[in-house]
Structure formats: structure tokens, C-alpha cells
Amino acid sequence: MALTLIACFAALQMPPLHALYAIFIQPLASAYGLGEWLLKATPLMLCGLGLSLGFRANVWNIGAEGQLTMGAIAGGGVALYIAPGLGPWGMPAMLLAGMAGGMLWAAIPALLRTRFHTSEILTSLMLVYVAQLLLAWLMVGRWQDPQGFNFPQSRAFDEALILPLLADGQRATVALYGALALAVAAWIFIRHSFAGYTMLVAGMAPAAARYAGFSESRSIWWGMLIGGATAGLAGIAEIAGPIGRLQPSISPGYGFAAIIVAFVGRLHPLGVVLAALLMSLLYLGGEAAQLELGLPAAVTGVFQGLLLFYLLAADHFAGLRLVRRPARAIA
């Protein structure tokens, strides 16, 4: 991958090593930069962990971006209109509402799949756009800040509802601890829980799961709801963090990038944590590339695509070997 990038930069007539430094090293050279790195890694971790559990069971939830958006809407609604009256319970109520919003959005494809055998790949993906349009509609309608000079955004959340920062001088929040705790929980779920085992069997050998009497629809529900809950949590954590209010655009595609994160992390919780850090660096690098090198914004997408491409290629070729076989014809 590095070679491809060097070739790209060379083709663009830039000093390759300087470009690589600007993209991958410089963003992490300051405390603020480190904070940005962890800030962007957090939602990727949350979404990636939830998705990887579903992917292991062959539940293809492609709509984490929409579940993230719904989590932000539900959690944001609570933050704006209910939580201020709940005192110390406001923050937990807001976070739970975020998870519930994501789960609700994930429940729709799960219901369609278990009842009507609809492909969850299509339905979850299409619901992404429904969620984003719903958010946009709220931002210019009911939930718009009356004192906001007609900007499409909500009021700022109460100070008490903003997640505490990890440290001063940067923007990452304690949501990172939540993501790391979730990684541990996911690891326990996979390694030690019977539900995790049944989901794995359902993914690896559906006929064996039927033979053993593991319910397929339960596996689908678990896979979708866990993914929805973590994506919803990522959504509310994002807007209750540095943004501090609802706005039409809350995620630069974290929910989609998390699919790559899950696979690069080999669907293993520790792997997902590391892959989220890598993917976050690619986001930062993409921004740096725009600022420092004047590359177009699409460069982030190119990085992500290259990463997934090389991963899949390596997977494919790791199991194959080129063999020379003497050709034999009709004697």
C-alpha cells in the first residue's frame, strides 16, 4: 500500500517521503493532533465493534451511518427537550435514548429480514438516507434554533449534557473509555457467551446452526440490534461532544468507514480498536493532504479504498498459490 501511495505522489510530482510525513506523522505531532486522532477513532470503534459482531453471524448491516444519525436524533431530542428536567439523570437518559434510536432504526431491517426475507443489505442502506433526510428536515423545521439566525441547527445542549473531555487543550471526550470498555465486553461476548457462539455458528455454517437448533431469526435480531445500539451511541456521543448541538451533517461517513474498520480488524474486538485508530489517521491524513499538499478531498476515500482493496487481495492470495501444470491434450 505504501508503495502505491509513493507511486501516486511521484506521479503527482511531489516528494513522496515529505508527502507521507505530512499525511501520517505530522497530524500526530501535537497534543491537539493526538486528541483529534482519538476523537475520530471513537465513533469508528463504536460502530466497528457492533458491526463486527453482526458480520460474524452473516448479518450484513450496511446502514450504521443511518443508525448513527437516528441515535443522534433520538439522543439529541432528549437532550433538547427532556434531559434538562432530569438533573443528574439527564446524561444517562440522553445516551440511552441515543442507543434506543439506533436500535429502532436497525430493528426495521431485522423485522423485514425475519418476516419477509428481505435483504438487510439493501434495506439498512436505504434507511441511511431516510434518517439523514429526517435530520435535515428537523433542522430547518421544528427543532431549529429560534435564535440561530436561521442556520439549520438546533439550540446548543446544556453544559451538563456535554461529555467531559479527556484532557484540556484537545477535543476527545470520555466516550473513548466507553468504546474501549465496549471492546472488552465484545471480546467477552465472543469468547465466553453462548449467544456469541451461536451467532458465530450461524455465520460459519448455517446448516449446522439449524441442525443444532440455534434460531436464525434470533441471530439476525441480535446482530442488527447490537450494531444499531453501538452506532446510535456513536451518534449521540458525537453530538454531545465537540459539536454540542444537532446539525444536518454530523458524521463524515463514520458508519460506512466502520464497515472497513470491522474487516480490517478481522472482526476481532482488539483488531477493530487498532483498525479504528488506523482509519482515523487516514481521515486526519486526508485533511492534512488537502491543507499541506493541495490534494482534493476525495483523497480520504482513496486511502480507505486502497486499504480495503489490499486487505481483500491479501486475503485472497494468502490462500492461493500459482502452480504450473503441464498441459495434457488428447493423445
Partner: peptide, 20 residues
């Protein structure tokens, strides 16, 4: 393979298939 046992799982994990 694939019904009576999960090919990519260990024999221990395959014991769990009907032993849970």
C-alpha cells in the same frame, strides 16, 4: 461437514454444538 459439524471450528467448539 457443515451440518453435523462446523468445519472451521475446533472439536471442542463442535462438542458445544449439541452439548450446550
Amino acid at each position: 461437514l457443515g451440518r453435523g459439524a462446523v468445519p472451521a471450528m475446533s472439536l471442542a467448539d463442535n462438542t458445544l454444538l449439541t452439548g450446550a
